[in-house]
Computed example of a mutant assay.
Amino acid sequence: MIAMTGPTVLTILLNFRTPDLTLRSAEAALAAMEHVAGEIVIVDNDSGDGSFETIRAAAEARGWLGSGRLRVIASDHNGGFGAGMNVGMAAGLASGAAPDFYYLLNSDAFPEAGTIAALRDFLIAHPKAGFAGSFVYGEDGLPHQTAFRFPSAAGEFETAARTGIFSRLLKNAIVALPVPAETTQIDWTAGASLMLRAGMIHQIGGFDETFFLYYEETELCHRAARAGWQCWFVPKSRIMHLGSVSTGMKRWSRTPGYWFDSRRYYFTKTHGPAYALAATLARVAGQTIWGLRRLLQGKPQADPDHFLRDLVAHSFGPGLKPRKTASPLTATPR
């Protein structure tokens, strides 16, 4: 192994029952880390299907474990995406030191050769930037939307109503932004390929483990923004992403309860219970408008079955009980 100096990156690759994809992603990440100081840690998120053993054996057979560039560890429970990433961040570098940057990578995402270096170099050059995210495209080469505004009550209404006049009136509240062609500051971006400044994480903490899936990176970016950190979209950094392999989101016939719970908790934590209620009422109003358009104009079903009923059911009552605001990170920053 060639010793490298300079700012270090810990790439965290989270696996949940996708060992073959995880190994493919790790291979791409190793190539992208070729000239980047740091390591890769694969975290098996308590898959319970032999994934950990499969990945570890394959990594051993390929000589990765002896390279000093890759480790395979296991979480003792599946607390969701954020909890699994917290495990990886807490692992730090093999030396016990903290890296300068954490790079979060989905198991179904495959970085191009310069992707990790591009994000690292951007954060080095922009000290107020806490996050840098990639241009993401699918197997078909088409770009995925990964640049967003923070959710709001107005945005909830616009999202649900799906009606041109409201979208024009509320254009500054639309959550999903057109894919930027240039490097652009945004509110938040998806965690499929996302680099975080370690100093920021040690200041504000890691992921809030109350979220199981969805809204966790949104809340982390929101918390960071309140502390003065910026989030940027860096199109020079590129990954191919299959999307929703572990969660099955593309195949949902009904939205799982944890999505509604995470949505409600996000609004409650960031804006308070009254605002969370207002956001839900705005979403219900928008869904009602779309329902009327379906009835009168024959518009297609745009949401999974029973979405409105499930939204209301999960928006009242005790809600999620906060767990860890952020896992403590045991590695000591340099």
Rank of each mutant, 00 (worst) to 15 (best):
A276S: 11
M200W: 00
A153N: 10
F110S: 13
L14R: 05
A31F: 00
P304Q: 02
L170Y: 15
R238N: 06
F52A: 02
L14V: 02
L220G: 07
R226G: 15
I165Y: 12
A285W: 13
R69D: 01
S262C: 13
P7K: 11
E27G: 07
I116A: 14
W229L: 04
T247P: 06
R149N: 13
A147C: 12
A313K: 14
G80W: 03
T54M: 03
H271Y: 14
R17I: 05
A26I: 02
I12G: 01
I201Q: 11
P273H: 07
A190Y: 07
P235Q: 05
E60F: 00
T184R: 10
L119H: 14
Q230L: 14
V87T: 08
S107I: 03
E139S: 10
A118K: 12
L308V: 12
K269N: 14
L169Y: 12
A147R: 11
A173G: 08
F16T: 05
H126K: 09
V41S: 06
R283T: 14
R62D: 00
T5D: 06
G68M: 06
D121C: 02
L295G: 05
L13S: 00
A37I: 01
G272F: 02
F267A: 12
S75Q: 07
G228H: 12
M200V: 04
P127C: 11
V9K: 09
M33A: 11
E182Q: 15
